[in-house]
């Protein structure tokens, strides 16, 4: 059913390209000085919330509005109407929207590793993907990034779903958590902060799950450096074209926000819990388990293309059928370069 949903999403995204070109939307965007921004729940929300509170941003953009998006369709509609000019998003969603004609620029990638697995220790060790043979694995969101990364790793390890292991898909990571805690799964594939939420809830029932970092496994199986460009920030192209100084200020603020999250996980966790259903302790556990570092769009291009190419082997619709061209990536002025922390 998700596939049908996705196809509808892609059709709608294509039609949004036409809508986004209509002058009425530009007129609406110009008539307001407020910067509309959107973010999904989780660490991207913490980063963008902090960035929009940055004094430099407040000085340059007095009115800002940050709202949460739950569905790529919703984000597409907001971006197409120019109701949202800036958005935190998984990189594949950004590429997909771009390829379907939504005029976007990828400003940066700041989440480089949020995926991992938890395993019941009584069902055997979990030190590598190879250990999944004979196990029952739960995965949220069929066809989405966690699933594709998981299946890519299985392929690299020579494991086949059905033949070597059983996989159950869930509609939400909240369901995966409960199935794992109830010991109905041997292993759960989960992004942070849901992985930490699972660990904490499992601990209440005497379980200490084994953990496997999927980014490390990717590096081991592909020979690449650990770190997958999973989420970043995009802006509408007209924001860059008309107000490049605003984009530069925002980019700097996001860089400082990323540094702040890494340096001050406790404070960042409080911010995260204030804006999501998850608690401070969940965010506090999740931050050190997530690879967070700032890299500009252009700087991330090589790794993004490698990542997208690998995953489009499993699902051509993952990024909308092709690699985004160079216009997708924010040009990299020297002032904003570097930051491979």
């Amino acid at each position: 059913m998700n596939r049908i949903h996705r196809r509808d999403f892609l059709k709608l995204a294509a039609s949004s390209a036409v809508l986004s070109a209509l002058p009425i939307h530009r007129a609406m965007a110009q008539s307001s000085t407020k910067l509309g921004a959107a973010t999904p729940y989780g660490l991207p929300q913490v980063i963008l919330t902090r960035a929009l509170e940055d004094p430099a941003v407040q000085g340059r953009i007095p009115e800002r509005d940050l709202k949460a998006w739950k569905d790529p369709d919703q984000l597409r509609a907001w971006l197409a109407r120019a109701e949202v000019m800036l958005a935190a998003t998984p990189t594949n969603v950004a590429a997909n929207l771009y390829n379907r004609g939504v005029p976007l620029v990828l400003m940066n990638v700041n989440v480089w590793g949020t995926l991992g697995m938890l395993g019941l220790t009584e069902r055997g060790r979990l030190q590598s993907v190879d250990d999944l043979a004979g196990r029952h694995v739960g995965v949220p969101w069929r066809g989405d990034m966690p699933d594709l990364v998981f299946r890519y790793l299985l392929g690299k390890a020579g494991l086949q779903i059905g033949r070597d292991l059983k996989v159950s898909y869930h509609s939400s990571p909240f369901e995966t958590v409960q199935m794992f805690v109830a010991r109905r799964l041997d292993v759960a594939v989960l992004p942070e902060p849901m992985r930490t939420a699972t660990r904490l809830q499992a601990a209440q029932f005497g379980q200490v799950p084994a953990e496997l970092d999927m980014q490390e496994e990717w590096a081991r199986l592909t020979g690449e450096k650990p770190g997958l460009p999973q989420a970043g920030v995009v802006c509408r192209r007209e924001l860059l074209d008309r107000y490049p100084e605003q984009v530069a200020v925002l980019q700097g603020a996001i860089r400082r926000a990323v540094d702040w999250v890494v340096a001050m996980p406790r404070e960042a966790a409080v911010t995260g819990s204030q804006h999501s259903p998850l608690s401070t302790s969940v965010f506090e556990g999740a931050i050190p388990r997530t690879r967070i570092r700032m890299a500009s769009g252009m700087e991330s291009r090589k790794q993004l293309e490698s990542f997208f190419t690998a995953l489009t082997e499993l699902s051509s619709g993952f990024i909308g059928g092709k690699l985004p061209d160079s216009d997708f990536y924010l040009p990299d002025p020297s002032a904003e370069s570097g930051g491979q922390g």
């Binding site: 909240f174 409960q178 969940v282």
Partner: peptide, 17 residues
């Protein structure tokens, strides 16, 4: 409460059970 990660009561079995 457990499903939405809001609170988990002390229980002798997992929330789903």
């Amino acid at each position: 409460g457990s499903l939405l990660q809001q609170f988990t009561l002390p229980m002798a079995m997992t929330p789903l059970e």
